[in-house]
Amino acid sequence: MSQFRSKKLDIGGFINGRIIRDHTKRKVFEQYEPDRQALRYIIRNTSLPQRVRAQAQLQLSQMHAYTRSTQIKNRCVAGGVARSVFRDFRIARFQFRMQALAGELPGVRKASW
């Protein structure tokens, strides 16, 4: 884990411990995803011997939790909030409203009819 703290974070906006942890999870997931996919392929391949499939399943279960995609949480890049985050803009509902009203989001206008 200490190897990730020494690297410079390439994220902008608000930074707290949760954002740093989520950033670390994303980097670890990106690094280990090919290995996880290979192990899942071996586990699902019924033409392989049962022993090989069982060993692959054991290896997959012993991998660190940060290598799973379910550990990644969408967070607001402006405020660090994890609730009501718009995926397209990666910002929370309140920040979206403030930036849209200020005209800082391209292609977003207040609805009027």
Score class of each variant (00 low, 15 high):
59 Q>I: 05
41 Y>S: 14
50 Q>Y: 02
33 E>G: 04
76 C>T: 08
79 G>W: 06
11 I>P: 00
57 Q>C: 02
27 K>E: 11
53 R>K: 15
26 R>S: 09
54 A>S: 12
50 Q>G: 08
85 V>C: 05
35 D>F: 10
24 T>G: 02
20 I>A: 10
19 I>E: 06
29 F>Y: 09
78 A>K: 13
18 R>P: 02
59 Q>S: 13
20 I>C: 04
49 P>Y: 02
50 Q>L: 11
20 I>S: 04
37 Q>W: 00
55 Q>A: 10
43 I>F: 02
29 F>R: 03
14 F>K: 07
21 R>T: 08
24 T>I: 14
70 T>H: 04
10 D>V: 15
79 G>T: 14
2 S>V: 08
73 K>R: 14
67 T>L: 08
49 P>W: 03
64 H>T: 08
83 R>S: 14
16 N>R: 04
7 K>G: 09
24 T>S: 06
66 Y>A: 12
76 C>G: 05
45 N>E: 11
34 P>V: 11
51 R>Q: 15
41 Y>R: 13
23 H>M: 02
33 E>N: 14
54 A>P: 01
16 N>A: 08
83 R>M: 08
66 Y>D: 12
17 G>R: 06
14 F>G: 03
35 D>G: 06
71 Q>T: 13
39 L>C: 03
37 Q>H: 10
38 A>C: 05
8 K>Q: 13
68 R>K: 09
66 Y>C: 08
72 I>W: 01
57 Q>D: 09
49 P>I: 10
5 R>A: 14
55 Q>P: 01
58 L>I: 13
38 A>E: 11
54 A>Q: 14
24 T>K: 06
4 F>V: 10
37 Q>M: 08
75 R>H: 07
38 A>W: 02
71 Q>A: 12
73 K>F: 00
41 Y>A: 14
31 Q>P: 00
85 V>D: 06
26 R>D: 01
62 Q>N: 13
17 G>E: 08
50 Q>D: 07
85 V>E: 08
4 F>C: 12
21 R>E: 14
14 F>A: 10
34 P>S: 10
21 R>L: 15
19 I>T: 04
76 C>N: 02
84 S>N: 15
8 K>S: 11
85 V>R: 06
36 R>V: 13
65 A>N: 09
84 S>L: 13
27 K>C: 07
75 R>S: 04
72 I>N: 09
79 G>R: 09
21 R>V: 12
7 K>Y: 13
26 R>C: 10
48 L>G: 04
39 L>H: 02
71 Q>Y: 00
81 V>R: 12
77 V>F: 00
52 V>T: 09
50 Q>A: 14
23 H>D: 09
70 T>L: 03
75 R>N: 03
57 Q>G: 06
31 Q>W: 10
80 G>S: 05
48 L>C: 01
54 A>K: 15
85 V>Q: 05
55 Q>K: 13
27 K>W: 05
44 R>K: 15
63 M>E: 05
32 Y>R: 09
20 I>Y: 03
60 L>I: 09
13 G>K: 08
46 T>N: 07
78 A>T: 07
56 A>W: 04
36 R>Y: 01
27 K>I: 14
